[in-house]
Nucleic acid binder design. Structure first.
Lengths: 232, 232
DNA sequence: GATTGACAGATTGTCTGACAATAGTGATCA
DNA sequence: TGATCACTATTGTCAGACAATCTGTCAATC
């Protein structure tokens, strides 16, 4: 039983809030984060803020340019591609492990998350879709029994969150997504680790392709502005 | 041409020095790092030190216990096992990628690092062995063309450095190591990505087993002291 | 004898205020 | 038009301070 009353340190809370803000899109790729500004808004001192920023930097969620300060990184497609490749690798492994050693409780969690997702697809509710997806993955990673993979994936996914949110809300993608997730679940339920790995990797591959389309369309629109920014 | 004379910020330099010190074994698993002490020794202020510590914490190189401060983590075997599993996955992928897209220059670097390693094995020079291994991997990861994998692996390997140094210096292990590395190189030189992946994974698997023996022997010796510490 | 309570010392968590160094900006002048 | 130069905004770094917390010790109590 956990009786602790959130004795979180300031920098820790700060890091969490900023993380959440970036994932929620409050700060967008390319945005600068001004220290004094954040201190004021969060009601904390600069040293505490800077500690939090260092944590986020090491997570890859922000980059800190010397003498210019922190900003949300703008991913190149090459970087995104690397992330997707590693993500496929790790998620495949997690699925395979899960197929081998998940408990019935884990499978149950996955099943209900999957059902929630399918309901959300039918009703067309983007928020529920996102949370159901998160639940599904959490259950799978928990079932894999490898905390390291879970942590690494969480960080990687955070870095492509921007692409993810867009491609997930794209017409048609949700339906395919549901099918792919079901395939992962079925393979795991059967205990077929080989099939589970394949299904998970295929899912990431498809997500990558959806993201690529998004980024391509995006780049075409804002190409001038962005390349000017990068070369500066 | 790079003329800059180390315009690295203080916290960055600090992080690097501490990283190097931990890898070199100056601070051993379980050691506490006292802020005031480090500030004095490094000649820096506490805020700067704390920023550096937050970076190292996010890298997993130290843990910071609330109100007790930073310390070098003591790995359980379960944690080490997770790291080895992910390492096998990533190194296998890197080897496979390298087999597909390394340039002749990359292969040349690997070849000379391998030769240096074999010479070091014959002369029985542990320091050269370590540096040659590092060179070999650096070349392979560079050849894979995936900077993310390189970064992730670097961090993971840092976390098991303690085990690694011990198992590498173990009688007999070096010779096997040389054989395994040669197998990786040959597969990459042939462009056989499948064989390269297998060879790299086998190499990690063997390293893991060597490490397990070390940890088992270690635990038997200091079991009393350690379990008392953990339960406290 | 074991548990509790109190206390001192060590260490971390956090803030304030300050100042130098740097990058970006706009004005000035050739 | 282009180069130069001050100005401003912002970051990098430090010193000093104080509260909060942990650790171990020692006496008091049951």
């Amino acid at each position: 039983m956990e009786l602790r009353v959130s004795i979180q340190s300031v920098h820790q809370q700060t890091a969490e809030k900023l993380r959440a803000a970036i994932l929620a899109g409050v700060f967008r790729p390319g945005d600068r984060l001004i220290e004094a500004d954040l201190c004021g808004r969060l009601g904390i001192s600069r040293p505490s803020l800077r500690e939090a920023l260092r944590s986020l930097e090491a997570e890859g969620l922000i980059v800190i340019v010397p003498n210019r300060g922190p900003q949300v990184p703008v991913l190149t497609w090459a970087q995104a591609e690397e992330i997707y490749r590693v993500r496929a690798l790790l998620e495949g492994e997690a699925a395979a492990l899960c197929a081998r050693c998940a408990t019935e409780a884990d499978r149950q969690s996955m099943r209900s998350a999957l059902q929630a997702f399918e309901r959300a697809v039918q009703t067309g509710d983007p928020a529920s879709r996102l949370s159901a997806t998160a639940d599904f993955y959490r259950a799978m990673l928990r079932g894999s029994g490898n905390a390291l993979i879970e942590e690494l994936l969480q960080r990687l996914v955070a870095r492509i969150n921007f692409l993810r949110a867009q491609s997930m809300s794209r017409a048609g993608r949700a339906k395919f997504s549901a099918k792919e997730m079901r395939a992962i679940y079925l393979a795991i339920a059967k205990g077929d680790s080989r099939a589970a790995r394949k299904a998970a990797q295929a899912h990431v591959k498809n997500a990558e392709e959806a993201a690529r389309d998004i980024l391509a369309g995006d780049a075409a629109q804002t190409n001038g502005a962005r390349s000017r920014k990068l070369s500066a």
